[in-house]
Design a protein around this nucleic acid. Structure first.
Lengths: 120, 120
DNA sequence: CGGCATCCTTCTGGATACTG
DNA sequence: CAGTATCCAGAAGGATGCCG
């Protein structure tokens, strides 16, 4: 057995498993049935209200689930929630907009994966 | 509303949601409590037997779960299962080894994320 | 409109025991 | 050793109803 195969820099490199934890942050960030859908919509619209998001997301999300998704994305600084008077609006933060490249990368990787697995 | 924000090439670009499906392939590939742990171990050891993997994975996986993880990774061409006589061994495919860069990327992204979210 | 409360179903993962 | 079979607990997601 050799050292940790993942060469990213970490302050303490005692165990490799901390690195996995860091990687899993990103997986958790995008995983779930609706998170990427929300991000994608907000990339197209700049600002959207709760109800708009709910009706525009293909497939149909329940309010409860969409609510928890937005809360989660907000906690992770991906979206910003603003309340002007009575209207509530969601928009991506600068950081949230950077998810576009992350998702793009995943799509590229995914295309390569499909080629590898089923040659299509 | 503008076009699809994700610019990867896809044969039919009618809807953007196909791209999300492709991206989710990769998330599914690495998601779950143990998949990356298994890949990481196999990156270090080249070949490993079932029982070795089970004991070496920190945290403790049940045989049932490890079994299903390995089956899943095999279906996705990440690991190869070989049975010489009575000994069964698992190793990464060439494609599976390419996951090292994918995970590295995730770690880099994750480090940036932690900086963004908690400034640490 | 923007949710929260409640209840229900499905999916992951875990504990334990058993088999070839 | 390399799993499979059973049973079980918790989380994620969904349906519906209610509230300010």
């Amino acid at each position: 057995m050799k050292g940790c195969p993942i060469q990213a820099m970490l302050s303490s490199d005692k165990d490799c498993n901390q690195k996995l934890g860091v990687a899993k942050d990103i997986l958790d960030l995008l995983n779930g049935k609706w998170k990427m859908e929300v991000i994608l919509l907000l990339l197209q619209y700049d600002k959207r209200r709760f109800k708009d998001l709910q009706t525009e997301i293909p497939g149909g999300v329940s309010a409860k689930v969409l609510s928890s998704v937005l809360k989660d994305l907000e906690e992770h600084h991906i979206v910003h929630r603003s309340m002007d008077d009575v209207t509530v609006e969601y928009e991506l933060t600068a950081y949230g907009r950077s998810m576009r490249e992350v998702i793009s990368n995943l799509v590229e990787l995914g295309l390569a994966h499909r080629k590898e697995v089923i040659g299509k």
